[in-house]
Nucleic acid binder design. Structure first.
Lengths: 211, 211
DNA sequence: TTGCCGTCCGACCGATCGGTCGATTAAGGT
DNA sequence: ACCTTAATCGACCGATCGGTCGGACGGCAA
């Protein structure tokens, strides 16, 4: 119930970085929102980039946990991919700043990619592992004949855009389709993605699957 | 061959804003890259937000022109939607900073959405009109029975993410799928999106269409 | 020649940026 | 009682931020 200062800092920093971006957030603002002096931030994180890296790593770790358990729960590539998508959507829905933070990070390759910050390389490796696992599932699905012979990297790019962007679209998405993080909107998004995968990637034959 | 100062400023500002974001770009940097003093920027644009708005409006206008001519060229919702997608991809491919600028703008609703900047409201209205046109095409497709009864706003969100994000993914996308703006990569993305729409949104019957 | 005007510039403004430093607490181990 | 260590703070640093101001330059109409 009472979080440590470090966790409090990470929480407010995640929200702020997602909302205004790396360059747009001042450490003063983060410190104030965390109820600390600005100097205290540097006791927990040596630099601003390190703080950002820690925030990012925590977000990716949450996704990793969910998707790994989803992938481990079933052997069939079809069911694995669906479970992974559902897990990703659930994680993004439970942590509203996460989606925007992830996409923003992809765009910050100028200020952050030199990456002498250990937290950032850790987050990077974590994400690489995750993507590699998904790629393996899709490849297995293609080889087994369950999926069409699609381009795996392109399919992953498509999925990231189609799944993550809507949860990051904020006011734009709200104006377009109403409250993004309502239970109905989340359910609609799951259905949207799952049917897209089902008809777009999977072979039409042997449609009914069993656990 | 010799662009006016205003156009030169817009060109370099578009690249910079796309790369580093609104808050991450200093006007000094833009002025230097344009071969001007910083004060000269304020002769052409009254504020930084106004410059950003002008850049954004120009990008959206390019997309609007392409998609409007694509939509006007054919009456069938199926062909219209496909042509619009191809037009969007082509525009994004010809103007590499555009995709990242568009997505970044969606995320900047804090610093930019109050929108007392006329260029920004112009860009907003332009985008609204464009989205409304696409929505009408999809709705027509559903009513004619050519498309499945999908949720139009969710479908649009999906398409924006799936089409725009890959072209905005920079180093991340490059690591995943190689050079993003190569002719082959662009062709792959068109195919990816078109087959996704064909199988995911359109009804399977009467597959062969004619002009 | 005179005067206007679009364009550009250097110098300057207050504010904020990320980051450093030294001092001050309180807790714990011995 | 003493020392260490973690945690916090206010004051301060040089640099950069968006934006203002007054003037300089050059073309053009009278």
């Amino acid at each position: 119930m009472l979080p440590t200062s470090r966790e409090k800092i990470l929480d407010v920093a995640e929200a702020r970085f997602a909302q205004r971006g790396y360059a747009g957030v001042g450490l003063r603002e983060v410190a104030d929102a965390a109820g600390l002096g600005k100097s205290s931030l540097f006791h927990h994180f040596p630099t601003k980039a390190s703080l950002y890296g820690a925030v990012l790593d925590r977000v990716i770790e949450r996704i990793e946990v969910r998707m790994q358990s989803a992938l481990a729960a079933s052997g069939d590539p079809r069911a694995q991919l669906s479970a992974a998508v559902v897990g990703l959507v659930d994680t993004l829905a439970e942590d509203p700043p996460a989606a925007r933070l992830l996409l923003r990070t992809v765009f910050e390759d100028d200020d952050l990619s030199p990456s002498e910050t250990p937290e950032l390389v850790a987050a990077d490796q974590r994400l690489d592992r995750l993507i590699a696992r998904i790629a393996r599932v899709i490849t297995a699905g293609i080889e087994s004949g369950a999926f069409r012979p699609i381009s795996v990297p392109d399919a992953i790019q498509t999925m990231i855009g189609a799944i993550v962007f809507p949860f990051a679209s904020g006011e734009f998405g709200k104006k377009l389709a109403g409250e993004i993080f309502s239970a109905e909107a989340i359910a609609r998004r799951k259905r949207e993605i799952l049917t897209l995968i089902e008809h777009g990637w999977m072979r039409p034959n042997s449609q009914g699957e069993k656990s």
